[in-house]
């Protein structure tokens, strides 16, 4: 336990020493903090309407103005962050968990199972993500759960393929061969010996994937097919803002800026994590 704690500490220190990594860490920290404490931070109820105060510009009362229903845009941006992370975190980590398990089984298991799982991954990957998302939404209707499901389903093959490659690289390593010769079970070899060697790479991949998922959720909400109204989301803010860009451009700013920041933050953090976890890459750069 002590050892793992010091490893985590080393990773955090490593990221913090990289200026871009530190910036990423701060941005992600702020976004996560705002998402967790959204309903304590927001100055107004994000779904409370006040039609008489609609489409106001920024002021001390409303930092980013109001939308067409008189709702405070700043409050909706903060609450929208919660929705973005509610989609991104379960979707990415769910996909990672399933992809990791299937990928390790494919890499370590018999050839026929590998072929079968690869066929499964390739089949899912053959669907363009957005088209697949639109089809699923049309079938089962838009909701937070639908978006999480779509993202998770389309991301599993990515994690699965990486996990499979890593597993295949490791399966003939001396320490694995030694374990096998001592009669260790498959679950022990995969869970105790291989997992710690794979999880770091996948964690980096997950960090880099989070902005993609946030953008996908925003994209679906922009099309009106993400979370249901009146739940605030960055994508729906952008959609309303786009329609009303000549009347109240602040909605577009409110919806667009957090997406840009989240993308930058998670990307910086992911790249920095990759450098720390795999110093060889850093030397190559």
């Amino acid at each position: 336990m002590e050892k793992s704690r010091s490893e985590l500490g080393q990773i955090i220190v490593g990221v913090a020493r990289d200026p871009l990594g530190l910036m990423g860490l701060i941005i992600v920290g702020v976004i996560v903090f705002c998402a967790i404490f959204a309903y304590w931070i927001v100055p107004y109820d994000p779904i409370a309407m006040d039609i008489k105060s609609r489409m106001q510009g920024p002021s001390t009362a409303h930092l980013l103005g109001t939308d067409q229903l008189g709702r405070d845009t700043f409050s909706r941006v903060i609450a929208g962050g919660q929705v973005a992370l509610k989609v991104a975190l379960p979707a990415v980590f769910g996909a990672m968990a399933i992809g990791l398990t299937l990928g390790m089984i494919a890499g370590y298991g018999p050839k026929w199972l590998d072929n079968l799982l690869m066929l499964f991954f390739d089949t899912i990957r053959s669907f363009p993500t957005v088209m697949f998302a639109l089809a699923v939404v049309a079938l089962i209707g838009p909701s937070l759960q639908t978006v999480v499901f779509v993202v998770m389903a389309t991301s599993i093959p990515t994690y699965g393929r990486v996990a499979r490659t890593q597993t295949m690289t490791l399966r003939n390593s001396e320490f694995i061969l030694a374990e096998r010769s001592m009669g260790a079970s498959m679950s022990r070899i995969l869970g105790v010996h291989m997992l710690p060697n794979i999880i770091g790479v996948l964690a980096v991949l997950a960090a880099m994937d989070i902005p993609t998922v946030i953008a996908l959720e925003a994209g679906l909400s922009f099309l009106g097919l993400g979370v249901k109204p009146p739940t605030p989301s960055w994508g729906s803010l952008l959609k309303d803002g786009y329609s009303l860009i000549r009347q109240t451009p602040w909605l577009v700013v409110g919806g667009g800026l957090p997406i840009i920041l989240a993308t930058l933050g998670f990307t910086f953090l992911g790249e920095s994590l990759r450098d720390v976890v795999d110093p060889k890459l850093r030397k190559q750069r």
């Binding site: 209707g141 838009p142 109204p229």
Partner: peptide, 21 residues
């Protein structure tokens, strides 16, 4: 739809808005 949702809520009717392409 959101205004209808809000006004129907005033008489205790819950409305879920289903947005479709």
């Amino acid at each position: 739809a959101q205004i209808i949702q809000a006004t129907l809520a005033q008489i205790g009717i819950t409305v879920e808005v289903n947005v479709l392409e």
